[in-house]
Design a protein around this nucleic acid. Structure first.
Lengths: 228, 228
DNA sequence: TGACTTAATTATGAATTCAAAATTACGCTG
DNA sequence: CAGCGTAATTTTGAATTCATAATTAAGTCA
């Protein structure tokens, strides 16, 4: 019955693979917030049975991307203002810590890497290429995270970051906010180069709060229009 | 086939219930770190089939309590020094934030609650009742967490806390460390009463680092003896 | 006896099946 | 024809089944 076409998954554990495949679908809103997760369709699409798919959904639920309603199936969670106001402060505290630790452990080579990413981000900003900007932006935050040399911190940060990502992605920044964000990143780079942990921590904290405010603003503007 | 005795689980979703039941088994080391999880036995014990149990194991794995080895089953994770050195700083940052936020939102009634718990903890200390001490201690941290009014923070903290709990529980504190811990808690209460957020944050941060050091010390003393 | 092969057993991962719950479709009554 | 109640259908949750991988046991030969 099950065909092993190129589309079909067959490496490592199926449920783990499915988690990795479902996450992007939720992040880029192919599976829309507030909608029901079409179990049957997804099984066909990935060429798997319900068992591993449901296992994956349980994991995604514990990460907050999916909500399980007993006897009613799985639903893509909404990004609400309440959630944004909750998650960003936590993310801020974690990123601040990552900055602190990164300054202690980062190598010169890694700093050069961040510098290169930063330059690339500036170019994306100048070209008003939001997709590229977001992509590089994330790489920078990730590079700092990795420099912190703390796998637990990385995991925690990324889990929360993921939850905010689709909102952040959807939320078109205002011209003014975008400018400010770039300025903040300028300072982030400077702190990192100077290996000034406390300063970097404070900057990242502020950066996160500004992001929060920006996302909230966008959410509120959407309230009248449509739920994300 | 499946009997619905009082032992058998039947409320809400089975996998969720199983997560809640398996966690304590791992925390109190009934399922010993480093050992294989006896799937079959647990199915019999809880009167469920393998499907929901395996779903629960996937969730526990994403929380770091269990490690899944492809085609080799599920294993209880070890608490290593590397992990302790990673998790406590993250926990410290989160608890610091919880202190900060708690000072902003806590009610007088809640402060009285913490005061009562604190008094109870002192009594446990004076009676050298470590079990009671740990239990009340956790209640205090949880009360502060709840006063922070941030469900995401609560969830994140508790997930990490859980991972450290069995180590913390096993790690008999030295007389000196126990005394210091009580002093730290004295200060925590004072900061809370004064609603001094920054001070409480700093105190909790230091408290966590002292806990880390204490656990590491114990782990090292165990290295020669036996792996936990 | 001891290392190596191979067969038997067991455990795992995932598909399938089945009972129960929820949803939808239908028909009845006012 | 609108609202309610009941039957048919679909979906969900969980048990069972089945193929495959891993482990253990048995047997072979130096």
């Amino acid at each position: 019955m099950t065909l092993h076409t190129s589309q079909t998954i067959m490496r490592k554990s199926l449920h783990h693979e499915l988690v990795d495949r479902l996450q992007p679908l939720i992040i880029n809103s192919e599976l829309k917030p507030g909608t029901k997760i079409p179990e049957k369709q997804l099984c066909e699409r990935f060429g798997v049975s319900r068992t591993p798919l449901r296992e994956a959904l349980k994991v995604l639920a514990s990460d907050g991307l999916v909500r399980l309603e007993p006897n009613r199936g799985a639903w893509v969670t909404q990004v609400t203002q309440e959630e944004v106001d909750e998650v960003f402060p936590v993310l801020g505290a974690l990123e601040a810590l990552s900055g602190e630790l990164a300054c202690k452990h980062i190598t010169d080579a890694e700093i050069e890497e961040v510098r290169a990413l930063h330059a690339q981000m500036i170019r994306s900003y100048e070209n008003r290429d939001l997709d590229a900007y977001f992509s590089v932006n994330q790489k920078i935050h990730r590079a700092i995270l990795l420099a912190a040399r703390n796998a637990t911190l990385t995991t925690s940060c990324q889990a929360l970051s993921l939850r905010m990502q689709r909102a952040r992605y959807l939320a078109n920044m205002s011209e003014g906010r975008w400018y400010d964000a770039v300025q903040e990143h300028e300072k982030i780079l400077q702190c990192l180069v100077a290996r000034d942990g406390p300063n970097l921590a404070a900057t990242l904290l502020h950066h996160m709060d500004a992001k929060r405010a920006s996302v909230v603003k966008w959410l509120q503007s959407q309230e009248t229009t449509d739920a994300i």
